[in-house]
């Protein structure tokens, strides 16, 4: 049986969550591995959310927001982008492949792109394999 990763998605309310809805309304199939959490803006994604997700056994985390310049709150996505860069360094330090964390821009009208992103990221994480027993070090790195 192939490994089916569990992926947490943090989707901003205005662009990516709506983009995901549009993918649904348009019946564009995608891998069932992504489970979405709605936040108002990617700027709300606290680094500890990401670390906690890995700690709880997620194999990958996707953060998806509005395109640069299009954030409903002007620049939350830029903040998110910076945090992701830092987080990837932290993950690397903890021995977690930084490719397990990805940030993407999907607008409310990009249902197809949403499905594509989900499929691509799922394939990538599937290739990386399960995130084994990294809970302790990740939590430690967070402190």
């Amino acid at each position: 049986m192939t490994f089916e990763p569990r992926i947490v998605g943090f989707l901003c309310n205005w662009c990516s969550y709506s983009g995901a809805d549009l993918a649904g309304v348009s019946r564009i199939p995608s891998a069932p591995n992504l489970r979405a959490i709605r936040v108002m803006c990617t700027g709300r994604v606290d680094p500890t959310f990401v670390l906690r997700a890995f700690e709880l056994g997620a194999d990958g985390v996707l953060i998806s927001g509005c395109h640069p310049g299009d954030c409903h709150y002007a620049e939350g996505n830029y903040k998110a982008m910076r945090r992701v860069a830092l987080l990837q360094a932290v993950l690397k330090g903890a021995g977690v492949d930084p490719a397990r964390l990805r940030i993407e821009w999907v607008s409310a009208s990009e249902g197809e792109k949403f499905a594509r992103v989900v499929n691509e990221f799922t394939a990538r994480v599937r290739a990386l394999g399960p995130l084994k027993a990294a809970a302790e070090p990740v939590a430690a790195a967070a402190d």
Binding site: V39, F49, A53, L56, R83
Partner: peptide
């Protein structure tokens, strides 16, 4: 209500009503 400040507060002193840390941790 974007919550950017909530995510950034090093003291965890900012609460984002409807999207608190607790709620999102529980959701996770």
């Amino acid at each position: 209500g974007c919550g950017t400040c909530v995510a950034a507060c090093p003291a965890g002193a900012i609460e984002g009503a409807g999207f608190t840390d607790e709620q999102i941790f529980a959701e996770l």
